[in-house]
């Protein structure tokens, strides 16, 4: 369960998140859509403290923090409960595929190296990359790297997986394998908040779609509703452009 109240983030004069309220139930899969520059990435990054919000209360599972004053250890507590999948994969360049997945288990959750690597190999098998365990990111295709990125997030066993445009940095040939893997993660009822430009995909996997504009959630609802009978003119205008 995750709950956000009044989440606000400014870059100088620019208010990028304008008091976001958001509750996500365990097992719920929420897709975020909206025009470029409306704060979708900033929302995800704020929930992972990659940005320090200016105001707001964040609850993730058993942890509640005041986002603007959260201490380093409170931020880590939130990060531990929110895994992140990056647009540009951001795999650890000096670690093999296996160790990319094992790293957080060792450093953050205190597992032994052997335990963590065994778990990492299970996950690699799940994501169809068992034979790439020893490969470094530089030797993997974009699609493979992003699958490892998703594997790393799976290993975190987090309350919620935050996924920011997982396919938009990929060559078209790799998009399908990544979406298929994400579909499986969603089907397993992993709680997720995913920003995507793949509208069909959002429609397939999401329980709820949020439309963001100007740092606010303008409209939200079940995908059947949002995609077929959006109420807000801004949502309509956006969907007309992208569908």
């Amino acid at each position: 369960m995750i709950s956000v109240k009044g989440l606000t983030k400014r870059f100088g004069e620019n208010t990028v998140l304008d008091g976001i309220d958001l509750d996500i139930a365990t097992g719920e899969r929420v897709a975020v859509i909206g025009p470029s520059g409306t704060g979708k990435s900033t929302l995800l990054r704020s929930l992972n403290f990659l940005e320090k919000p200016d105001a707001g209360i964040i609850t993730v599972g058993d942890v509640t923090v005041d986002a603007s004053t959260a201490s380093a250890s409170e931020q880590r507590a939130v990060r531990r409960r929110t895994s992140f999948v990056f647009q540009n994969y951001a795999l650890f360049a000096n670690k093999t595929a296996r160790d990319n997945i094992a790293e957080g288990l060792i450093t953050v959750r205190g597992w032994s190296r052997a335990q963590a690597q065994a778990r990492a190999e299970e996950i690699l098998a799940t994501i169809g990359l068992a034979e790439k365990a020893e490969s470094y990111p530089a030797a993997l295709s974009g699609g493979q790297q992003q699958r490892v990125g998703i594997g790393r997030a799976m290993a975190a066993d987090a309350e919620i997986m935050l996924i920011d445009e997982p396919t938009s940095a990929l060559d078209p040939e790799w998009v399908d394998e990544v979406l298929q893997l994400l579909k499986r993660v969603a089907d397993a009822r992993q709680t997720m908040l995913i920003v995507t430009h793949e509208m069909q995909f959002a429609r397939d996997i999401a329980d709820r779609v949020l439309f963001m504009d100007g740092g606010r959630i303008v409209e939200q609802g079940a995908p059947e509703v949002i995609f077929t009978e959006p109420k807000d003119p801004r949502t309509r205008a956006f969907l007309r452009k992208v569908l």
Binding site: N48, F49, L50, A72, R76, A77, R79, R80, S83, F84, F86, N88, A90, L91, F92, A93, N94, K95, E103, G104, T107, V108, R152, A156
Partner: peptide, 21 residues
């Protein structure tokens, strides 16, 4: 920069991030 963000996002401390990544 992505290496810093990935390290922090999994919940590493600054010291762990520096030493291991």
């Amino acid at each position: 920069r992505s290496q810093w963000e990935a390290s922090l996002s999994v919940g590493m401390t600054t010291a762990q991030m520096m030493r291991r990544i």
